[in-house]
Simulated assay, not measured.
Amino acid sequence: MSSTDPLTAPRPDETRSLVLVQSRGAVQRCRDFSRQALLDWRWLPTADEEQQAVAEDVLLMVSELVTNACLHAPGGPRLLRLSWNGERLRVTVSDGSARPPRLRSPAEPGNPGGHGLRVVDRLARSWGVELDTRGKAVWLEVAGPARTTEPGAAVDGSGWPQPRA
């Protein structure tokens, strides 16, 4: 199939959301949901090691944000949202706690736990917290995978090569 086939072409400015009603199994459900989105958006599969690492980093950071909501927010995570605009991916995990997460000092790296936000801080291009009357949303952003094209191939606005006429 060509890259202009609507079933396989990337769809920039796409958002997917997963509503969560309990913490039990939430991390795996969110990883599976995120992996499927990355497959649909053609981040995966890839033969390029760097692009593979970026996709795996996204899945790790999703796990960290969801785990934090499971551990520290009453009722656990409520919503996972993935927003892909063709250049960057924004991951948002919402929960019912108004207490913002705290980036712990790396003073005691041998202690278990408490390192998830440090991982996010190192791997994400940016991250932050938005508070509202229902709780908070912790978000992170990563740059999309690099697109490689054949020499002379036309590229549309999404960065994907288009077939030659």
Rank of each mutant, 00 (worst) to 15 (best):
W139D: 02
G135M: 02
A154T: 09
G135C: 07
V120F: 00
S126M: 09
G110K: 07
P112T: 15
A124D: 00
V119P: 01
R125C: 04
E141A: 11
P112N: 10
L140F: 02
T133Q: 12
H115C: 08
G110C: 15
G128C: 05
S126H: 08
V142K: 03
W127D: 00
G110L: 06
G114R: 04
A137L: 08
T148M: 14
E150A: 09
T133S: 13
T148Q: 08
L117W: 03
L140C: 04
G116C: 08
L131E: 09
P145T: 06
T149M: 06
T133C: 05
V119T: 07
A137I: 05
V119I: 14
L117D: 01
P112Y: 13
G152K: 04
N111P: 03
A153P: 08
S126K: 12
P145I: 12
A153Y: 04
E141P: 03
A146K: 12
E130S: 10
A137W: 04
G114P: 00
P109F: 08
G128V: 15
L140H: 03
P145F: 00
R134L: 11
L123S: 06
W139T: 01
L131H: 14
D121M: 09
G135E: 04
A153L: 14
E150F: 06
G114W: 01
P112L: 11
R122W: 11
E108M: 14
R134W: 14
P109H: 08
P109W: 09
P145V: 13
L117T: 00
R125L: 13
P112A: 12
P151Q: 06
V138N: 03
L131K: 09
G113T: 10
A143E: 12
K136T: 01
G113C: 13
A154I: 07
G128R: 05
A153Q: 11
P145D: 03
V119M: 12
R122K: 08
L117A: 02
